[in-house]
Computed example of a mutant assay.
Amino acid sequence: MNSQPTLTKPAAAHIPTRWVGPLRVSGNVATTEIEVPLATYESPLWPAVGRGAQVSRMVESGITATLVDERMTRSVLVEADTAEIAHTAARAVHGRLDELRVITRATSRFAELLSVREEIAGSLLFLRFEFSTGDASGHNMTTLAADALLGHLLEYVPGIRYGSISANYCTDKKATAINGILGRGKNVITEILIPERIVTGRLHTTAARIAKLNTDKNLVGTLLAGGIRSANAHYANMLLAFYLATGQDAANIVEGSQGVTLAEDRDGDLYFSCTLPNLIVGTVGNGKGLDFIEETLTALGCREERTAGDNARRLAVLAAATVLCGELSLLAAQTNPGELMKAHTRLERLAGGHHAH
C-alpha cells in the first residue's frame, strides 16, 4: 500500500506588496504624481525604485513618458506545396485586408486589425496579425480574431491548408528580434534630465560615471552576452513586481524586459532614458476581477471613464516610469564600489531574505 503525503494548503498566500513613490510623470498620455504598487520578494527593490521616484519629484517635469506605438499580435501558420504558392497566397491575403478588418470587428467591439506581415520559409507561410485591443492586453481577443481570420483565409485563398493557430512569429512570452523591431503591446519611451546637483547629492555619483557604466555594462556587456534587442540592467525586476501588483500576465515580462537604456553626460547634467517596446498590460480581462486588483487599478487612476484604450495606456506609462526609477537607482549604485552589496545585505537582513543580484 502506497502512502501519499498529506499536503496542507495555506489559508492565504500573499506576495509582499508596497506602494512606492510618488513618481512624477508627464507626457502624451498622463501628467500625474502618483504612488505605484510593487509585489516582490526582493525587498531592496522598494527603496531602489523609491530613490528614483524621489529624483523624479526633484525635477520640474519629472519623468517624461511618450507612448509611440501600440499593437497586440497573433501569428498563424498555413502550409502550401511550394514557396511559389505560399507567395501567391501571401499577396492574396494583403488583397483581402478590407474584408479581414470587417471579420475582425465581428469578433469583438474593441478589436481592430491594423496590419498583416508575412514570412515564408520553404513552403510554410507565417502570417503575423497586428491588432489594437482597447483596454485589454489582448491575448484572448487576438486569438479569437486570428482564429476567425484563419478560417476565412483557408476557405477563400487557394493552395493553403491549416498549420497552426499559433506559429511563434507573434512572439508571445519569448525574447525575439521581431518584437523588439516591430513591437508587441505598448511601446513607451521614458526620459529625464537630472541637474548635476541632484546627480551628486541624491544619487552620489556623476553623469559621466553613469554614462560610462551604461555603455560598458548595458551596451557592450549585453552585446558580448548575445542579448536580443536589449541593453538594460534589470527591467524585469520592476516589470514583474508591477505586473503582479496590477493583475497582468506575469510571463509577459520575457518580451517586456527587452529594452534599451541610454545615458548621456550633458555638461554635468544626466540625460537618462529607457525604451520599452513590448509592454503588454491591460485594465480589463483575465486577472482584473480580484478585489485587490480592482482597488489597485482604481488607486492608479485606471478605472476612469475614458476613451477605450486610455486606461491601459495610462497603466503602461506608469509601468515604464517605474522601470526608469529602478534602472536609474541601480546604475547609480553600481558606479560606487560596494554600494549595491551593502544595500542588499542591510535591507534583506531586515526583511529576512537572502537574495542578491
Rank of each mutant, 00 (worst) to 15 (best):
R303V: 14
E155W: 11
S230G: 04
P337V: 07
Y235P: 04
A308K: 14
P10K: 03
L240I: 10
S75Q: 01
A92T: 07
E327G: 01
A251L: 04
R266A: 08
G221Q: 11
G138K: 01
G338Y: 03
K217N: 13
V188N: 05
K342P: 15
A167Q: 02
N252C: 02
C170K: 10
R105G: 12
A236R: 09
S61F: 02
T88R: 04
G309C: 10
L244A: 07
R96H: 08
I178T: 11
E119K: 05
S166Y: 14
R197K: 08
I34K: 04
Q54K: 13
D310A: 12
A65H: 13
K217P: 08
E42D: 05
C170H: 15
L144T: 15
N232F: 06
E264P: 01
L240S: 03
V76I: 15
T31Y: 00
A211W: 00
A250Q: 01
L328C: 00
T32Q: 11
T298P: 11
N218S: 12
T64K: 08
I178D: 05
G309I: 02
N252W: 00
N218D: 06
T88I: 08
S61G: 09
L149H: 09
E118I: 08
E35I: 09
G201P: 06
D269K: 14
N187W: 13
A146E: 02
S257F: 01
R197W: 07
G289I: 15
A207G: 07
A333M: 07
A145M: 08
I34T: 14
N187G: 07
H152A: 11
G226F: 14
I178V: 08
G95V: 14
M1E: 00
N336F: 02
A106V: 13
L290H: 11
E119C: 11
T8A: 07
N336Q: 11
L276E: 15
V76M: 06
A343P: 07
G287N: 09
R346I: 12
A89I: 03
Y235Q: 05
P277G: 06
T6I: 13
R117P: 03
S230H: 10
R306A: 06
H234R: 11
A320G: 00
Y156S: 15
Y169N: 04
N187T: 10
S75H: 06
T296C: 04
G247N: 09
R101E: 03
A167N: 03
V93R: 13
L114W: 00
R105A: 15
D249F: 00
H234L: 09
V260P: 08
A92E: 13
R51C: 09
E155H: 15
R101D: 02
L114R: 07
V220D: 10
Q258K: 03
Q248M: 07
V20R: 06
G52I: 05
G50L: 05
F272N: 00
T6N: 12
E191Y: 01
A146K: 04
S132Q: 11
G27L: 06
R128Q: 12
K186N: 15
G163R: 12
A145R: 02
R105K: 12
F129H: 09
L347P: 05
S123M: 14
G27H: 02
H152G: 04
S26I: 00
V254M: 07
G353M: 15
V68L: 14
